[in-house]
Amino acid sequence: MSHAADIALIDRFLEMMAAEAGASRNTLLAYQGDLIAASEVLGGRLGAAKPEELGRLSSEWADLANSTLARKSASLRRFFGFLADEGMRKDDPSSALARPAARRALPKILSRDDIDLLFAEIEIRLQRAGDLKRPLRLSALVELLYGSGLRATELVSLDVRAIVSDRPYAILRGKGGKERLVPVSDRARFSVARWVDVRPTGTSWLFPSGKSHLSRVRLFQMIKELARDAGIPPERVSPHVLRHAFATHLLEGGADLRALQTMLGHADIATTEIYTHVDSRRLVELVERAHPLVDAAARRS
């Protein structure tokens, strides 16, 4: 099999990922890069590679970080699975690929007391400010980060019509161009409405800045400054950490994991499980309280 043949197979695989799996452009580029690099290592024999040949890839990748190795191995497993499913190969050699014991680091955690400190600092700023524009903007930003679980990019690029005062949800276009509904609380809508009353006009952005919208970098800076003034180490707080707090605190309050997956815009429920780091003690208590076999055992005793 030639390198050109490998490229043809990779292109067919990417077409499938785009059409059937709805993979985003960045995801497709990552798959493409991993597969072409592997093909080059194997001299254009990736599509026909035998298990022992895949061992060369493991040697080639020996010095890579575990997370990178895990991604490359996952790309190849999906590729070979596609070839087998489509009848282009009679076997799937991907079992020969390395399986690094990579784990995602748990996200930084903010307690409810920490969140209270952030909002208390915002209230102080609102009471002290002569010009309310900046504290009102900050209030709306934090309410949407923590109250709706928005990603930083989703938040700063919101259209001014996205949050409506009489509608308890917003429709967002997130990763991969996929739309989803996110909840918008009464207090978040109130904060946004107060901000809209004073925001600069002449632009469609909810959070305008110059000729465009507020940048992610500036949002990060604002959240760090807020944390510092609230007495929380700034390195513990970011827009992503506030999104994580939204998920964690909802789950701790009894939210359904599938509903949370939808609100966060995760394609894979496993991502939600890692993101929310449910503690085992609470899950055990849930089983003991709700499982029918527990009730049966209690009746027999």
Score class of each variant (00 low, 15 high):
70 A>L: 07
281 R>T: 12
274 I>F: 04
162 A>S: 15
195 W>L: 07
21 A>Q: 15
53 E>C: 05
10 I>T: 10
64 L>C: 09
228 R>I: 05
40 E>N: 12
75 S>D: 08
118 L>K: 08
216 R>F: 02
272 T>A: 08
135 P>F: 09
7 I>L: 15
75 S>I: 08
46 L>C: 11
103 R>Y: 13
171 I>K: 11
193 A>C: 01
232 I>W: 01
122 I>W: 06
105 A>Q: 14
207 F>A: 00
283 L>H: 08
163 I>Y: 00
188 A>C: 04
244 H>K: 00
62 A>I: 14
292 P>K: 00
270 A>W: 02
12 R>S: 15
16 M>H: 14
267 A>V: 12
243 R>W: 00
62 A>Q: 15
118 L>R: 04
179 E>Q: 14
94 S>I: 11
265 G>R: 08
183 P>G: 03
225 E>S: 15
158 L>F: 05
159 D>V: 02
275 Y>V: 11
92 D>L: 12
96 A>Q: 04
187 R>S: 14
155 L>Q: 05
157 S>I: 00
56 R>H: 13
160 V>A: 13
227 A>Y: 11
198 V>W: 03
82 F>S: 10
275 Y>F: 13
179 E>N: 05
212 S>W: 02
127 Q>N: 13
115 I>R: 05
156 V>L: 02
232 I>C: 06
168 P>D: 03
115 I>S: 03
99 R>D: 03
28 L>R: 14
209 S>K: 12
241 V>N: 05
259 A>F: 07
16 M>V: 09
23 A>T: 06
156 V>P: 05
94 S>L: 11
139 S>V: 00
78 R>V: 02
129 A>M: 10
269 I>M: 09
182 V>F: 05
70 A>P: 08
109 I>C: 07
136 L>F: 03
130 G>P: 01
222 M>Y: 05
101 A>L: 12
287 V>I: 15
12 R>T: 12
141 L>C: 05
233 P>W: 01
220 F>P: 00
265 G>K: 07
83 L>G: 11
181 L>F: 13
80 F>P: 08
193 A>I: 01
66 N>F: 05
31 Y>K: 11
35 L>C: 11
43 G>E: 03
237 V>N: 01
148 S>I: 04
292 P>E: 01
159 D>Y: 01
119 F>E: 07
28 L>D: 06
197 D>C: 02
16 M>G: 02
97 L>Q: 09
141 L>P: 06
18 A>S: 13
141 L>Q: 06
194 R>D: 07
135 P>M: 11
191 S>I: 02
61 W>E: 09
99 R>I: 04
298 A>K: 15
73 S>A: 15
229 D>K: 14
109 I>Q: 14
255 A>D: 11
45 R>Q: 13
49 A>K: 10
298 A>G: 06
300 R>H: 06
215 S>I: 04
